[in-house]
Simulated assay, not measured.
Amino acid sequence: MEDMTKTVVIADRYIEAREAIRRYVHGVMGFRVIRECSNRLETIRSVSLLTPDVLFVEEGLYRMYKGEILSKGVCHPLTVILADKDACIERVFKKDVFDYLRKPYTQEDVERTLHRISYAVQREIPSERPNTASSAIFVVDGIRFKKIAIGDVMHVKAARDYSIIYTDVGEYVSSHGIGYIAERLNAGFFVRVHRSFIVNLAYVDELHREGGRMILVLKNGHEVTVSRRYVDTMKRLIL
């Protein structure tokens, strides 16, 4: 059975507050605290290097953290604000914040938030599908349909309501969306790493992290950022 444990980072200047959140999280199955931070730099470093699923962060630290990390477009965890009063909550509770907790919060408050996170993440996990892949596909090439070996497909990129199929010998436009194409590619070789990208693992040269992002480098030098939704998929390939 796959490990679906969600990783958690806690950022608060006060040790009592961090200990309380850690204790409450420990009591909820499926979540694990991997780091506690007491200042802005620790928070930035931990989120960038550990790429946690969930961040509990004090409102004051969040405002500094957001300015240095979130505004740069780096993938960030589901954020739960820890605020002292309602005025703070109203100031920071925007679309990039998943939830908030007003101090003093209880174990029931934390459990309720974590259960909401579990439900939200579960909705984003791609469903299992039967393998209907073939050894070859046909793509439009002028007025003909050209046969291409499935192994020659390097990656597929979404382009609005159609897709572009990249191969060693050229690029081909498909009138189908990337979701339709993903269902017809062999899941053992092709991996969906972004809402706009499918990659053939045979053409991946390396995987690295940069500024909190997970990036794939293809053999042709093309770089593809792994979106948050598919990070767990890539993590399962790291042994």
Results as ranks from 00 to 15, higher is better:
R13Q: 13
R13K: 12
R13I: 12
R13T: 11
R13C: 08
R13V: 10
R13S: 13
Y14P: 10
A17D: 13
R18A: 05
E19N: 13
E19K: 12
E19F: 09
E19H: 11
A20E: 11
I21A: 01
I21C: 01
R22I: 09
R22A: 10
R22T: 13
R23K: 12
R23Y: 13
R23M: 13
R23Q: 12
R23A: 14
Y24E: 05
Y24L: 03
V25E: 04
V25D: 01
V25A: 00
H26N: 12
H26V: 02
H26P: 02
G27D: 15
G27L: 12
G27M: 15
V28H: 01
M29V: 14
M29W: 11
M29C: 11
G30Y: 00
G30W: 02
F31H: 03
F31V: 00
F31T: 01
F31Q: 00
F31S: 00
R32N: 08
R32V: 06
R32C: 06
R32M: 06
R32Q: 09
V33G: 04
V33Y: 07
I34E: 08
R35N: 15
R35S: 14
R35A: 14
E36M: 10
E36G: 07
E36D: 10
C37R: 06
C37H: 03
C37M: 03
C37F: 04
C37E: 07
N39A: 04
N39K: 03
N39S: 01
R40N: 07
R40Y: 05
R40Q: 04
L41G: 07
E42L: 03
E42V: 06
E42S: 04
E42P: 05
T43H: 02
T43I: 04
I44A: 08
R45S: 13
R45P: 00
R45V: 13
R45Q: 15
S46L: 05
S46N: 02
V47E: 04
V47F: 00
V47I: 03
S48Q: 14
S48E: 15
S48Y: 07
L49D: 14
L49R: 12
L50G: 06
L50A: 07
P52H: 08
P52G: 09
P52K: 08
P52E: 15
D53M: 01
D53I: 03
D53L: 01
D53A: 02
V54I: 11
L55F: 00
F56P: 00
F56A: 01
F56W: 06
V57P: 02
V57T: 02
V57Q: 00
E58I: 08
E58Y: 13
E58D: 15
E58M: 11
E59K: 10
E59T: 15
G60W: 04
G60M: 11
L61I: 04
L61H: 04
L61W: 00
